[in-house]
């Protein structure tokens, strides 16, 4: 999914891009900040499930997760979204993420709060793509340098 070149960092042309994994699906998601990379990782996951452009924005949810490191935080965030999707039968296409850290000398946790926007599943309207069975830690990465990027593999 192309977006306009990012004004802060012109290298970011894509929110996410998929790569080959034999039985599952993998992607990199990008952002100028860690929060933005997490938002795009969530968007990519829902893009595996359906065409995110067809999701109306009439339901909102708030979630919070707390984890020991950034990789676990990404995992827990995506897993929480997957569970919400399955239990409430809902699809999301807009994410606003805030990440706080109370890590001191290696102790403490990362805290994430997110606001999610989407709508209930209606398979007559929404395009069915793939069912995501699980988020995995396999090859998961969180990297921040001039930009932030995260790598995720989903079990399908």
């Amino acid at each position: 999914m192309k977006i306009e070149k990012n004004l802060i960092n012109p290298n970011i042309e894509k929110k996410f891009e998929f790569f080959e994994v034999t039985a599952d699906i993998g992607y990199w998601a990008y952002g100028n900040t860690l929060e933005e990379a997490f938002e795009n990782a969530a968007l990519a996951m829902f893009d595996v499930i359906t065409n995110v452009q067809k999701i109306a924005k009439n339901e909102t949810r708030e979630i919070s997760v707390e984890s020991e490191d950034k990789i676990s935080l990404l995992y827990d965030f995506l897993e929480e979204l997957l569970i919400l999707h399955e239990i409430d039968l809902i699809l999301f296409s807009e994410f606003e993420v805030k990440i706080l850290s109370d890590k001191i000398d290696g102790n403490g946790n990362y805290k994430l709060k997110a606001s999610l926007t989407g709508e209930y599943i209606d398979w007559d309207k929404h395009e069915r793509k793939s069912e995501v069975k699980a988020v995995t830690f396999h090859m998961m990465k969180v990297l921040c340098d001039t930009i932030c990027k995260v790598r995720v593999i989903l079990d399908l």
């Binding site: 569970i83 399955e86 239990i87 039968l89 793939s130 069912e131 069975k133 399908l156």
Partner: peptide, 17 residues
């Protein structure tokens, strides 16, 4: 509880893939 909650609406269904 998460696993149970995921299981409740899906019992008696084939799945995909």
């Amino acid at each position: 509880e998460k696993a149970k909650k995921r299981g409740i609406p899906q019992l008696g269904s084939l799945g995909s893939g």
